[in-house]
Computed example of a mutant assay.
Amino acid sequence: MTTTATTTARTATTLQRVDLALTILRVIIGVIFIAHGYQKIFMFTLPGTTGAFTQMGVPLPALAAPAIAFLELLGGAALIAGLGTRIVAALLSLNMLGAIALVHLKAGFFNPNGVEFPLALLAATAALVLTGAGASALDARLLGSSGVAAPAGHLGRSAEHRLTGPAPGSSGLIRRGRGQLSSPGREPEHDGVLRT
């Protein structure tokens, strides 16, 4: 195996592992948010959740309680599907920041009422905001991108070409911009630019 082929294989394996990790993160965090939204809507009921928000000092509890409950329920489902992941994760991050600041901070760090659990959810949702959903998400299928940044040596190449190599019967050259072609694994300035 050449150095370029070895690097490409390692990159493909790394990207596959990152995509798997993001899928696991999305699904587990999504399930947790669905459970909490379900609890607020169907177990505590919206009037009960509104009353609890009032007692906890949450501003505008009549608006905040149903908004948070449905955000958690529907946002959790969206995370599992990987649909609108960055936007949903950003909203859930703000939700966790509010929960930490308004409710959990005064109870210290540890569970059952401390910041430990909402802080972990904040970290997970913030990571999804930064990385995107991964290749197995609806975002990737609908938008054509996993949202995961490629390593520096692979910027500008399509994910499919990075992972599978050139299409059968193709020259293996990648279009870099207006009329520029280069070989996989090499930047255009290093391999003689062809202009059309």
Results as ranks from 00 to 15, higher is better:
16 Q>M: 14
45 T>M: 02
25 L>W: 00
32 I>M: 09
46 L>T: 03
50 T>L: 13
21 A>C: 06
31 V>L: 15
32 I>E: 08
28 I>D: 08
41 I>Q: 03
37 G>K: 04
40 K>Q: 04
35 A>Y: 12
50 T>A: 15
35 A>E: 12
33 F>L: 07
43 M>S: 12
20 L>F: 14
22 L>T: 06
39 Q>G: 12
31 V>G: 13
39 Q>I: 02
40 K>G: 03
25 L>M: 08
43 M>A: 14
42 F>V: 04
38 Y>C: 08
47 P>S: 11
42 F>D: 01
18 V>T: 15
33 F>T: 11
35 A>C: 07
49 T>I: 04
49 T>Q: 13
38 Y>K: 00
29 I>E: 08
40 K>V: 01
48 G>E: 01
41 I>W: 00
44 F>K: 12
28 I>H: 05
36 H>M: 04
26 R>F: 07
24 I>S: 10
25 L>F: 01
23 T>W: 07
28 I>Q: 09
36 H>N: 10
45 T>S: 14
36 H>S: 09
39 Q>H: 12
33 F>H: 10
33 F>G: 12
39 Q>W: 02
24 I>M: 11
35 A>D: 11
33 F>D: 09
18 V>S: 12
28 I>K: 02
27 V>S: 08
24 I>N: 06
50 T>S: 15
27 V>I: 15
33 F>I: 09
43 M>F: 11
48 G>D: 03
16 Q>N: 15
47 P>E: 07
48 G>R: 01
29 I>K: 02
17 R>P: 01
19 D>S: 15
48 G>C: 02
32 I>W: 08
23 T>G: 14
